[in-house]
Structure formats: C-alpha cells, structure tokens
C-alpha cells in the first residue's frame, strides 16, 4: 500500500507534464477542428462537421495525405534497407570501428534539422555538388531537377531518421548469442542462409521498433519537406502550417492535424499488433 502511494507520488510530476503538454493541447486541437472554419478568422466558435467534409471530400487534400503516407513508407523502407547492413557491420566489427561509426550514425541528431536540410540544398541544387559533377563529367548538359522533388524529401528524411533505425536494430542484434551463427554453420548453413534463417528472425524486434519509430517521425516531419519540398503545401505537416499561419484558418488546420494524428496512430497501432502476432516484439525471442 505504502509502495503504491510512493509510486504515485513520484509519478505525479511526469503525469502533470504529460497532461499539460500533450493531452490538453491535443484536446484543444480536436475541439478547434469542430469550429466553423473561416479564412483569417482563427477561432470563430460554433460546432460543425464541415471541416471534415471539406478535407475528406477534396482530392487536393487527400492527395497530400496520400503523398505523405507514400513518402513516409518509402523513407521507412529505404532506412531499413540501408540501416540494417550498417547495424550488422557495427555488430560484427571491432570496438574501435563501432565507436567511430556510432558517432557518425548519431551525427544527424547533433546538427539542427534546419541546418542539415540546407546542407542538402548545397548537394542537390541545380548548381549543387551532384549537378556540377555530372555536368563537369560531361554526362548531362542541363542540370537534373533534384531539389523540390520527392527524391529530395526522401533523401533528407532518411538522413535524419537513420540513427533511430540503426540503433534499434543494433540493440536487437546485440542480444543475439554469437554461438547461434556458429551452430547454424556447423549444421550446414552458409552465411546467407544463416543470416536469413537465424540472424534476421532474431533481429526482427529491432527492425519492428525501428520501422515504427521511423514511420512516425517521417509522417510528422515538418522542416525537411518544408525546406527540400519547395514552396506551397506538399506534405501534410506543411499543409497544417499553411492553414494555421498563412491562411489563419485555425479550425481547418486543426482538422488536418487531427486527421494526421489519427492516421498515424491507427497505422502504428495496427503495425504493432501484426508485429506481436508474428512474435517480432521479442515475446518468443528469449
């Protein structure tokens, strides 16, 4: 009894911060989304479902939601495909290499996202590193458009989410008994089959955690699509910003934000259910 009370005592600050900074704003947000939407009006009050009807009935807005989902999925897939080999290498390599690579992997987090996004402009721009190199080599005559495309957004996002993917997978790999790989080879499995039948299934909890985190981060990313995606709303987060700040239509902005939140939560919830069904959350791994 005493223990429960002590625990409650220590939990209180954390719970209060969560309520103040998360539950209350989200509550307000949902309430705003039912106000009458009006350009330049901020919050006009009243109650209407018109915002939702407008959002779900307009292919322009649904197109942006679809594009956001699509680019987030591409980002997640690419970060698994590039992050796994790196995590595997870090797992196998010497302590020294691993230390240096860890710093390298964490480097996107050490620089402001704004700065690293502008860094990508230097690389991807019409007179950027890539285009200058290609023109200099005589491979192309006019610059290839890289900036303000889906490619630019995905490249920027993969760069930023990489640490979360690599470190999640590495944590799972480190829990694998290295003797398991040896046991597999004594039973006749070559490296590839050992990887496929033994290592990957056991790394699945890390891949599951990594993809969940990365997908959530990509869906809610703002700076990268804003800087690398060009002007105008092209991503769901930039649409929200546009509604709130440019058009002053707070109720409609709140509606888009509520939709983003429910779609993200819905997808992550469904994904976690599937992962635990196949035992990829470490239920059977140990």
């Amino acid at each position: 009894m005493m223990k429960t009370r002590t625990a409650l005592f220590f939990l209180t600050p954390a719970v209060m911060i969560m309520v103040a900074l998360l539950v209350m704003p989200v509550g307000y947000l949902v309430r705003f989304s039912f106000f009458v939407g009006q350009q330049g009006a901020q919050t006009a009050g009243g109650f209407t479902l018109a915002n939702y009807a407008k959002l779900l009935g307009d292919s322009f807005y649904l197109g942006i939601l679809g594009r956001t989902l699509y680019l987030s999925l591409i980002t997640t897939t690419l970060s698994v495909l590039t992050g796994y080999p790196l995590a595997h290498f870090m797992w196998k390599t010497s302590k020294r290499w691993r230390g240096m690579l860890t710093i390298l992997v964490l480097s996107p987090l050490l620089v402001s996202i704004v700065v690293s996004s502008y860094g990508w402009i230097v690389i991807l721009g019409n007179r950027g590193v890539i285009n200058n190199a290609l023109i200099g080599l005589g491979l192309i005559d006019t610059p290839v458009k890289l900036m303000f495309t889906n490619i630019a957004i995905v490249v920027g996002l993969v760069h930023i989410v990489m640490p979360f993917m690599v470190l999640s997978i590495l944590a799972a790999l480190e829990r694998i008994d290295p003797l398991l790989a040896e046991a597999a080879t004594t039973l006749g499995a070559n490296r590839l089959r050992t990887l496929w039948h033994v290592i990957l299934p056991l790394a699945l909890p890390g891949i599951g955690a990594g993809t969940t985190i990365v997908f959530s981060l990509a869906m809610s990313a703002y700076v990268t699509p804003a800087v690398l995606g060009g002007s105008g709303p092209n991503f769901i987060t930039t649409l929200i910003y546009h509604q709130f700040v440019t058009l002053f239509n707070w109720p409609f902005g709140a509606t888009v934000a509520a939709l983003l939140l429910s779609v993200s939560v819905g997808i992550v919830f469904f994904y976690v259910r599937v992962l635990s069904r196949v035992g990829a959350l470490g239920v059977q791994a140990r």
Partner: peptide
C-alpha cells in the same frame, strides 16, 4: 554441441 546449448530461440 556447445556449452550454452546454442538452440535457436525462435
């Protein structure tokens, strides 16, 4: 056969 058994846990 290894000391730690090395059975595949999954």
């Amino acid at each position: 056969v290894f000391q730690s058994h090395a059975l595949f846990p999954h």
